[in-house]
């Protein structure tokens, strides 16, 4: 059975016995098992969460407030809080990310040190642990900016200098920035050179070309980036732990300076700090199911749009 010897010593021989390359089969088999293992685990997680969560999962669950010390009722405020968070986040991150991507693809010169530094910063931003963004949000947005506003405009009265939706959203915007930049950059690069040249040859300036030809062509890329960022922002909890998420609120937030409830944070506190973890188990699973449906479907949409962009590029 020692096919290795056969192969190295006698090629003709081993070729005839190709069917019995046991070692090869074994090794390929192991790699195959690794793939199957990952896929199996993924579906097991999905399956268990769907199975355990399906019971409580209903329109009523989604559309009602938690009741009875959060041991009963729905997750409406957490869902709304998550929506507001990702909307404010997108408003901040999408223009910023798009402009940075435009800089990198259109304005940055090849081999420019500054462009390299920008790129490196963005990649660093993508690997910095999310909890650090939370610390930064606390130290910068809440204490430095918010505290500064309070000091100068509110005579030291605490208003902006405490956790709220705005600071949480901006913190989240920083976290999701690289996602947007990468997507938009990819889309900008698929705009054919011929189109840029056509515009420039008609006497358009660089900015006119970007505005009229390049940007309209990359709308779908900007959308992909936004959707991916929203999906990410909806699921991240660490950055908002101390920048705005609240344990429980009886009313929906009314302004940007209010705190908010959040799906992911809700899951976290319900499963670790709830008064009765056992009893609220179905609620926890159903909340997790809602969050998963939200993030995975957003991702799916993004993947579909992205594959279309890639096909167009070919």
């Amino acid at each position: 059975m020692n096919t290795v010897i056969n192969e190295t010593e006698n090629h003709f021989f081993s070729n005839k016995k190709k069917g019995v390359d046991v070692k090869g089969k074994f090794i390929i088999g192991i790699t195959q098992i690794a793939v199957l293992l990952i896929i199996a685990v993924l579906f097991i997680i999905l399956g268990i969460i769907i199975y355990e969560g399906r019971e409580k999962f209903s329109w009523e669950f989604i559309s009602s407030f938690p009741t009875n010390g959060m041991t009963e009722g729905g997750i409406f405020p957490a869902l709304i809080g998550t929506f507001i968070l990702v909307i404010v986040m997108s408003i901040a991150a999408v223009p910023f990310g798009t402009i940075t991507a435009i800089y990198l693809t259109e304005y940055a010169k090849e081999n420019s040190k500054i462009a390299a530094a920008v790129r490196f910063s963005i990649r660093t931003l993508a690997v910095v642990p999310s909890i650090i963004f939370g610390l930064f949000g606390l130290g910068f947005f809440i204490q430095f900016v918010g505290g500064g506003i309070d000091k100068t405009f509110n005579a030291g009265q605490l208003h902006w200098g405490q956790p709220n939706i705005l600071w949480a959203s901006l913190t989240m915007a920083l976290l999701t920035l690289p996602v947007i930049i990468v997507s938009v950059e990819e889309a900008l690069k698929t705009i054919p050179r011929e189109l840029r040249e056509a515009s420039l040859a008609l006497g358009a300036t660089k900015w006119q070309t970007i505005k009229n030809v390049v940007l309209p062509g990359s709308i779908s890329g900007i959308m992909t980036g936004t959707i991916l960022a929203v999906s990410r922002g909806a699921g991240e909890v660490a950055p908002i732990l101390f920048t705005g998420a609240a344990y429980y609120l009886a009313t929906l937030p009314e302004s940007l300076s209010d705190q908010f409830m959040n799906l992911g944070y809700h899951i976290y506190i319900m499963s670790t700090q709830s008064s009765d973890v056992e009893k609220t188990m179905p609620i926890q699973f159903a909340t997790t199911l809602v969050l998963l449906i939200l993030t995975l479907s957003l991702n799916l949409v993004a993947v579909i749009i992205r594959s279309r962009i890639r096909r167009r590029a070919k």
Partner: peptide
């Protein structure tokens, strides 16, 4: 002006393609 080897109309309407230059 320049006409390229590969025709490269903008992904816009015919009218918009012609009006692009005058508009800018």
């Amino acid at each position: 002006g320049m006409v390229f080897q590969k025709s490269n109309p903008f992904p816009k309407s015919i009218y918009e393609n012609i009006a692009y230059g005058p508009k800018i």
